[in-house]
Simulated scan of single mutants.
Amino acid sequence: MSITQQHLLDTYRARRLGEPAPPAPGSHDWQVVREWRDEWQFRAVLAGRPARHRFRDALNRWRRRPT
């Protein structure tokens, strides 16, 4: 059974039972990514490391390098 089929089945069951419909698959993906990043930064601070944005910093260094 695919994710879409499971979602449709869960929606059908919720409607029959008068419950709110479940969220669509993938609707909270970015929220999960943000929470994971916040947790990583929090753990870095607790461990005494700087809570930096390594990927963003690397892009900025690449963009600002002399040509």
Rank of each mutant, 00 (worst) to 15 (best):
G26N: 07
R16Q: 13
A21R: 05
T4G: 00
L8N: 01
A24C: 04
W40V: 14
G26R: 14
D57A: 09
M1V: 15
A47M: 10
T67D: 03
A44Q: 15
D38C: 12
G26A: 14
T4L: 01
A21G: 03
G48Q: 11
R13A: 08
A44D: 12
R63M: 11
W36T: 15
R54M: 15
F42T: 07
R15N: 10
P25H: 04
R16E: 15
R64H: 11
A47C: 13
G48P: 10
A21C: 04
R52M: 08
Y12L: 07
A21N: 01
E39F: 12
A21H: 02
V32T: 13
G18N: 03
L59P: 00
R15L: 07
D57T: 06
S27M: 02
R54T: 14
P23C: 04
F42G: 03
G18E: 02
W36Y: 13
P23Q: 03
R65Q: 05
L59S: 04
S27D: 03
D10T: 00
A24N: 02
R49K: 09
W40M: 14
G26M: 13
M1G: 09
H28Y: 07
T67A: 05
L17S: 09
A24V: 01
E39K: 14
D10C: 00
E39T: 09
F55D: 08
W30C: 05
